[in-house]
Amino acid sequence: MDDYKQSNLEQLEAESIHIIREVVAEMERPVMLYSIGKDSSVMVHLARKAFHPAPIPFPLLHVDTGLKFPEMIAFRDSFCRTIGANLIVFNSGEGEQTAANPWDWGTVKCCGALKTQGLLTALREGRYDAAFGGARRDEEKSRAKERIFSFRDKHGQWDPKNQRPELWNLYNPRLDPGESIRVFPLSNWTELDVWHYIHLESIPVVPMYFAARRDVVVRDHLLIPVIDRARLPPGQVVETLECRFRTLGCWPCTGAIRSSARTVREIIQEMMTVRHSERITRIIDHDQDSSMEQKKREGYF
């Protein structure tokens, strides 16, 4: 019977494919949130696998805050072109939100305006009833409690204390008009699983994940990339250090770590000794004790 064994990664892959297909079979207008990061790369890869030989039967949606790294945008455009994906870009930093930035508004308000409101507007305008996200339960403690099919009310809000019980692989897809679900096919993947899968499947990722010499300022344990020198507080010293990004977000709120890992293999090697979680490189998560839960309640991914 050993011939019929599935490894951990094979089980995770099959589970994710099953989830993605369930959404397409049950929902009217699904969309996949594409954030350009490694988890998104894996999720899109799984979507291709789910429907092969057909193309991915839903669009990818990128909510662009206008504060993404230029390398991310370049990767996004070439990646989507190569795989033939239908990419929709929603610019959340336009219109009434043009003034939003973390320096004047603070990270909480900026995130709420550019990411949460941007996302909600994009989903509403597209009349999407299901949105895939690449979040994993091991990322953050409130995510550890979220369902794979996560119900959202008419305002896109999450009610963590009133979630639908989710048993086996039987997901409840039923909605009233205006309500929606967020779907997390990577719920049971860990950061290490994601990198192993990228390694095994040769999935392309943004080059920023690999070490290079970059201009940064050092703040506590974080290396803050210098994208806009005009935004540097007076007295900050710019250094050029070998570093890489463990997660990718908006550039003012994403820190790099010192690293010499230049390949996926070296990243996996580095993970054997790394002692900090990946979220620590995000400035937004630890504003306050339950900041992620709060943002999720309001409609954030």
């Binding site: 064994k5 599935q6 951990n8 995770l12 290490l192 390694h199 095994l200 054997m272």
Partner: peptide, 17 residues
Amino acid sequence: LYTSVDDLLRANREADQ
């Protein structure tokens, strides 16, 4: 828990759940 990255890669390829 692992002695080398090759160990780790092999383990994760073969590990079950």
